[in-house]
């Protein structure tokens, strides 16, 4: 079972339906920490403000559950804001601590380009990842964001995109994954990534 964490941010229907369309079974949306605790995979979606999202995860006890399950080996996928939350800290309207699963800080995109970065942009893959199995090189994905995560270690970067500056558009550290774009809004290639994540989760269950 894969839990999409509902922490009051944004519309989660598309993510749930995207998994369904991609053929991944047993995906459900829940705000319930107990159901997340029992899941074999956790998806952290999100649009909105970093601070509000962290405050909500904290208040509901979801932060503790997510960190604890990741420590136990459960694969995590952060989408958009969900990827930024994986970092150590964000400078979005102040300074806010993140989940600290991928060392790095979130910074605003440079001012020489239109912000938010909105639309389809290509992703290059500095290293192979099971998350991009079957995804063609230089495929485009749908982005909507004003901040981006800058991982401390290049080893954690599995996707790179150019917008004003080159930035990490996908990260992975062990079984923690994050994508800055919206796979559930990126048509066929996006759904392939959801299918890949499903395989990562279910492959681990089987082994």
């Amino acid at each position: 079972m894969i839990a999409i964490v509902d922490y009051g941010m944004g519309n989660l229907r598309s993510a749930e339906k995207g998994f369904e369309k991609a053929g991944v079974e047993g995906v459900f949306v829940t705000p319930d920490t107990e159901r997340v605790r029992e899941a074999d995979g956790i998806v952290l979606p999100g649009v909105g403000a970093f601070r509000d999202a962290m405050a909500d995860l904290e208040r509901t006890g979801m932060r503790e559950v997510v960190v604890e399950r990741v420590a136990a080996g459960v694969p995590l996928l952060g989408i958009c804001l969900g990827m930024q939350l994986l970092g150590s800290m964000s400078f979005e309207n102040g300074e806010h601590e993140g989940l600290g699963l991928i060392p790095g800080v979130c910074e605003r995109l440079p001012s020489n380009v239109k912000v938010p970065h909105m639309g389809w942009n290509t992703v290059a893959y500095p290293q192979a990842s099971p998350l991009f199995e079957g995804v063609e090189e230089e495929s485009a994905f749908y982005f909507v964001h004003s901040y981006h995560l800058r991982p401390e270690s290049a080893a954690d970067v599995i996707g790179r995109t150019e917008y004003g500056v080159p930035f990490a558009s996908a990260v992975a550290k062990d079984h923690v994954y994050g994508v800055q774009f919206h796979p559930e809004k990126s048509s066929e290639m996006g759904l392939r990534i959801l299918a890949d994540y499903g395989r990562i989760v279910h492959g681990r269950e089987a082994s």
Partner: peptide, 11 residues
């Protein structure tokens, strides 16, 4: 809008 969200995976 609801049905589109179930079937269509572009914004």
């Amino acid at each position: 809008a609801r049905h589109t969200a179930e079937e269509v995976f572009i914004p």
